[in-house]
Structure formats: structure tokens, C-alpha cells
Design a protein around this nucleic acid. Structure first.
Lengths: 199, 199
DNA sequence: GGAGTTACTTTACACAATGTCAAGTGGAAA
DNA sequence: TTTCCACTTGACATTGTGTAAAGTAACTCC
């Protein structure tokens, strides 16, 4: 963060982002990123001491550009728990494909790198907060299905909204993005809302 | 398969299995496996030309020892769709922790190795078959929730029973194995069974 | 305008892990 | 006794990450 020209830093982050999205997180080397950014491999290491640092910075960079926080926060203004649930599923669910490549790389890195794991866990924590807010609202309205506590409902909803589940349903099962969003809303209602009004 | 003493092969497979389970799939090198098996690193390469081959063989070896097929098939003898659902969730859900370490390694390998990907996809296909059989039975009984088709129900159930979802709920959320099984049964009923009798 | 600073390039190398190669060994079978 | 088999030993190629050090071009400050 301290050393180097911010313009070069941005060039590197942009190249990293672009390549990771294009390759869906796979087989993107430091040298590929350097070449694509039009700088030497060592310039990358001047800005980001390790691959993990670069992946983490790329994640934060995308968050900033795409303004995730604001997008997720929007769901908080919904009036009812049901609306809040839908709004959050839309906000996060539609964000996943935009970060999928980088997320994949970061998840893979998490297996061996603690800093990467912290960054990803932090991200998941933010999603959990959104989930919990929706589930808590349902509970206050007396609408939460009796089968689950607030915490359990949060666990289940965030599992449903995990990148891994998104990946399985869209990429492996062939669901379209729109279908994934609609279906996830239906599932969340079936699971979390008492009386279960369905689709 | 052709060359080498079958006893040595088994020693290697056993060491591989043991180490992968202990390390939960992370940071297990060919040399670690060789040392643990009491053979030279090159002996491992004589039996398994690549790391991917060894992981694949280890997966098959565990399946054989643990007799997965028989365990999964057992659910097919259940009378009703609901019972079939429960039996399959128990059979597969309780198998996951037994293969988790090797599964993790194989999934990681799948990112870069086509043969590993084929092996893992094949495994997932077997799970899907079990899921589909249960969902189809529900449908024939007129019990399948109207929100989902057989294929969609299969997609959802297999997502719920994925290793990744198991990992998230047990390891990240702290659910016990037993709780995971019971909760997954409740979820499957909420999602798939019309009228939704609950827990 | 010369000295120093900054940001980057170039080149070289250390290191870890996979995978290859070839010569050697020890025991069992012909 | 010779031959073969299964394995060992040790050397090496390759790929990717990360480090180190010298060089360069532009810009800044007296």
C-alpha cells in the first residue's frame, strides 16, 4: 500500500480481476497478471508481497468498484421480513457471478493461506449478517417457521447463498442466473416462513 | 495397476487415505505418503504415475473398503418416498465425514486435473441418482411439492447433500453430525414434500 | 545543473513440489 | 547361476512463488 505508483497498482488489480474472471479463478499466475498489466513480474511483487496479498487486494478492489456494501445495505430498507429476504437474496445472489472468478481463487488460496482465509471468512460473515437480519425480522413478525431458530435459519440461508451452492446449481445443474434467484427465493420461503405461502 | 506388488500398492493407498483424513485433504505431499507407507517416493510413482492417479485410486479404495454402493442402495428398499428420502440422507450424509479428507483433496485437484474432475463428477452423479430416485418416488405418490419438478428437486437435494454444504454447516457453523442429518431431513421435507408435515 | 529519490526493469537465484531417468540391489524363480 | 522383478538411490528437469541486487529513466530539490 505504501510503496509504488497508485496508477500502477490499479493497473495490476485490474489485470488480476480481468484474468481471474476470464479463467474462473484457475491457472492465473503472477507472471500472467504482470504481462497483462504491462509491468514486470517484480513490479507486481513491489505492490503485493505475495499472491495471497494480491488476491485479497483484488477482492477489496472489486468490492469498492462494485459498491457491495451499498447493494447489500439496500435490503435493510425493506418493510417486511419477506421483502427483506427477497431483497437480500437478489442483492447477494446477483453479486456472486460478478465475483465468482476471484472468489474461486481466494477460496482455493484459503486452503493454505491464513490471511486469504480471514478475508474470505470476513466476506462470508457479511453475508451471514444480511441473512441474520432478514431471519430476525421474520421472527419479530412471528413469521419464522417453528422448525428453526434464528441462528439455524441464518446457517441454512447462508449455506443456500454460498458461492459453492451457486456454483453447483448454475454451472453444474445449468440453472440460469435468473432462475437461481427465483428458485432460491422460493426455497428460502419454504424453509423459513411459517405457513409457507410458496412461490 | 499392472506393475508392482499388490501389497505395496495397498500400503500406499492406506497411507494416502490415513494422511488425507488426518490433514483434511491439505498439504499432503507424495513424499509424505511414501514415507508413511514405508516405501521410497519413486515406488509410489511406479504404482501411481501422477498425484491425481493416486487420489483417484484412494477414493476407489475407500469406496471398496467402506462399501458405499451397498450403503446407498439400501435406501432403495424403503417403502414410501418419505422413508426413501430419510434413508438416503442418512446413508450419504453419514458417509461424507468418512471421505471428507480425500474428497477435499480430489475437489482441489479437479480444478486443474481433468481425470480427477471426472472421478469426482462421477461420484456426484451417483449421489444425484440416489436423490432422483427418492424425488421420483415422492412424485409417483403425488407427494412432491408443486413448486419443483423432479429434476429441480434432484438439483436442490443434491446441493443440500453436497460435501461443500456439509462442510459449511458442520465445520463453519458448528453443527454436529447428528444434527446435520436431522436438520437436512427436515429441510428436504419442507422443500420437497407437499403439505410439509415438518419435523 | 548536479545529487538524490522514486518507481520500475532486468537478471539471477533460492526453494518446494511434481514428475522423469537410469543405474544399482537383493531375493526368488528358472 | 542367471535372469527377472520390485523396489531403492540419487540426479535432474520443470514450474511457480518469492528474494536479491544492480541498473535506468524521470522527477525533485537545492
Amino acid at each position: 500500500m505504501s510503496s509504488g505508483n497508485p496508477k500502477t497498482r490499479k493497473k495490476i488489480l485490474h489485470a488480476s480481476w480481468q484474468l481471474l474472471e476470464a479463467a474462473q479463478g484457475r491457472e492465473v499466475r503472477m507472471s500472467d497478471i504482470a504481462r497483462n498489466a504491462g509491468v514486470s513480474r517484480q513490479a507486481v511483487y513491489l505492490h503485493f508481497p505475495t499472491r495471497s496479498d494480491l488476491l485479497i487486494a483484488t477482492t477489496h478492489h472489486i468490492d469498492e468498484v462494485k459498491n457491495v456494501d451499498a447493494r447489500l445495505a439496500k435490503s435493510r430498507s425493506a418493510a417486511t421480513g419477506m421483502e427483506r429476504l427477497s431483497a437480500f437474496i437478489e442483492a447477494w445472489g446477483n453479486y456472486i457471478p460478478e465475483i465468482y472468478g476471484v472468489a474461486k481463487a481466494l477460496i482455493a488460496m484459503s486452503e493454505t493461506d491464513d490471511a486469504a482465509k480471514l478475508t474470505w471468512d470476513d466476506r462470508m460473515q457479511a453475508v451471514r449478517h444480511g441473512c441474520r437480519a432478514a431471519v430476525e425480522t421474520l421472527e419479530k413478525e412471528g413469521q419464522l417457521a417453528s422448525q428453526h431458530s434464528v441462528t439455524q435459519g441464518t446457517d441454512i440461508l447462508s449455506a443456500l447463498l454460498s458461492v459453492q451452492t451457486w456454483e453447483y446449481l448454475t454451472i453444474n445443474c445449468g440453472w440460469s442466473q435468473q432462475f437461481y434467484i427465483e428458485k432460491t427465493k422460493v426455497l428460502a420461503r419454504q424453509i423459513l416462513v411459517s405457513g409457507n405461502p410458496g412461490s
